[in-house]
Write a protein that binds this DNA or RNA. Structure first.
Length: 463
RNA sequence: UCCUCGGUAGCUCAGUCGGUAGAGCGGGUGGCUGUUAACCACCUUGUCGGCGGUUCGAGUCCGUCCCGGGGAGCCA
């Protein structure tokens, strides 16, 4: 008999139906009435299924009474209305087969809460816990919602390369990719001779698919990337990973205002989708992680996002009469305390800041007529601060050329990026969003290492 | 990378003034119950992160290294 997922059983409530379930035992409670309650979970939902194992079962004494947390079983029987509280249906087992034992003396998961730090050290078992099962389901639902959002709007999903030849943004340490034996790399005039390496030149793991997305936007119109990116920064925080997933839409014939409008629409749709499709998991996070979670997301969905310029934002902060650790002056990059003040105290909601000083933003952002600010935008949300960063791109060849030089970068390295502005250049815009940070915001989990299955951070490459 | 707080039983933690360790949970046994992280009784568990130093004596004080949490910077 084919197995039925517990999520389907709970949804259908088809009393009297015969079915087979398979999963991992969470807990067993024995009744002297001559039967046992076995709660199993198969990952399809937060809720498990209660199985009634009667002493008449052939292996009741030899096996059922020895089942412990972590064992895997197959149970066949009939669905019945549950007389107990806490569940509507339960499975009256006619046959239970133990698929795999889990020695309780050494199985690390218990029927209680563990610290996230401990669970990180057992990343091979942590998806069997309520929290990490819920994270995995929510992460999946969000990935699906992201694709749905763009596909519904006719965007082309672009597979940007993982290995790249150039330092894309001139920002962020990159991981080198080589086939050299590092102890015997060929040298030329004291330096490693990468012309003899696999690609005939230095190669890195990508830090962003944006420049490649621009290429395709200037042919296909609207594209998006959604894949892993890498930063070799030695930053050990609850918001940074060496390997993380990024979403980067890029739109031709699109200015900054339309870009911001899409970003806002994007966030609202993703949040609405998760609340609708992961109700049970979101209620779990709301109960155990952050009790304001659902309220916050619902508010974001229904409220307008405030849009104001960097200059206006600075003025508000200066007039606020609030002591900041970092003083506010036009030209400084906003600290998270400033971003949070704007969101949480001034506007009590999300804020989109646009038109930043060119000195604090990347070279590819389009210069405004005042020659002081560029068409950049940051979407700021309460608690987290910046969640999306984007811009209208510089589409004027000569202006871009100058900006690359100003940034101290080699214009030759960007020959193809410059040529896009030479042949049929059009206004275009895009934004980038760290997938894990979005999951953090949605789930309320405070450490980014807990929203990705296998976190890569400095000094840590287990699993 | 910097600041800061930590590392003690399988897990979560306590350990006062320096005198070689405790609780809860888990696990085991028994009892009880259509039970719900069940409950009750008894039993069980230690390289006190590593190395070095001070001391008659170090979980405790000092040095150093490793690992983790929180914050900062940078960013996504």
């Amino acid at each position: 008999m084919r197995r039925t997922r517990i999520a389907e059983i709970i949804a259908a409530e088809s009393i009297g139906a015969r079915c087979t379930v398979m999963g991992w035992v969470r807990t067993r409670r024995d009744s002297k009435g001559g039967f046992s309650f076995i709660e199993i979970n198969d990952g399809s939902s937060l809720a498990g299924l209660q199985i009634i194992a009667d002493q008449e079962l052939a292996n009741y004494k030899s096996e059922i009474l020895k089942l412990q947390t972590g064992c895997s079983i197959k149970a066949a029987g009939t669905l019945a209305e549950s007389p107990g509280k806490g569940q509507k249906v339960e499975l009256k087992a006619e046959e239970i087969e133990v698929l795999g034992w889990a020695d309780p003396d050494i199985y690390p998961l218990q029927k209680k809460r563990h610290s996230f730090e401990f669970l990180r050290s057992i990343a091979h078992l942590r998806p069997r816990t309520n929290t990490f099962g819920a994270v995995a389901r929510v992460r999946n639902a969000m990935a699906h919602a992201i694709h749905t959002f763009f596909q519904e709007r006719g965007f082309i999903y672009l597979h940007s390369p993982i290995i790249t030849g150039s330092d894309c943004e001139g920002a962020g340490e990159m991981f080198k990719v080589t086939t050299f034996d590092l102890n015997r790399a060929p040298e030329k005039e004291g330096d490693i001779d990468f012309t003899k390496d696999f690609f005939g030149g230095p190669a890195n793991l990508t830090v962003s698919g944006q420049l490649e997305a621009e290429i395709y936007a200037l042919a296909m119109g609207d594209v998006y990337t959604f894949g892993p990116t890498f930063r070799a920064e030695n930053s050990n925080t609850s918001r940074h990973l060496a390997e993380f997933w990024m979403v980067e839409p890029e739109m031709a014939f699109c200015d900054l205002e339309e870009n911001a409008a899409l970003a806002i629409e994007f966030l609202k749709q993703i949040f609405a989708s998760v609340l609708a499709n992961c109700k049970e998991d979101m209620e779990f996070f709301n109960r155990f992680i952050d009790s304001t979670l659902i309220k916050t997301l619902e508010a974001l969905i229904s409220h307008d996002f405030e849009i104001l310029t960097y200059t206006e934002g600075i003025e508000i902060l200066k007039k606020a009469g609030q002591k900041f650790e970092f003083p506010v002056e036009w030209g400084v990059d906003l600290q998270s305390e400033h971003e949070r003040y704007l969101c949480e105290k001034v506007f009590k909601g999300p804020v989109v800041l646009i038109d930043y000083p060119k000195e604090i933003k990347a070279f590819y952002m389009k210069m405004n007529q005042n020659e002081k600010t560029v068409r950049a935008m940051d979407v700021l949300v309460p608690k987290i601060g910046e969640i999306i960063g984007g811009s209208q791109r510089e589409d004027d060849h000569d202006a871009l050329y100058e900006r690359i030089k100003e940034a101290g970068l080699n214009t030759d390295d960007y020959w193809w990026y410059l040529e896009l502005r030479k042949f049929g250049s059009v206004p275009h815009s895009g934004f980038g969003l760290g997938f894990e940070r979005l999951i953090q915001f949605v789930t309320g989990l405070s450490n980014i290492r807990d929203v990705i299955p296998f976190p890569r951070t400095p000094g840590n490459l287990s699993f």
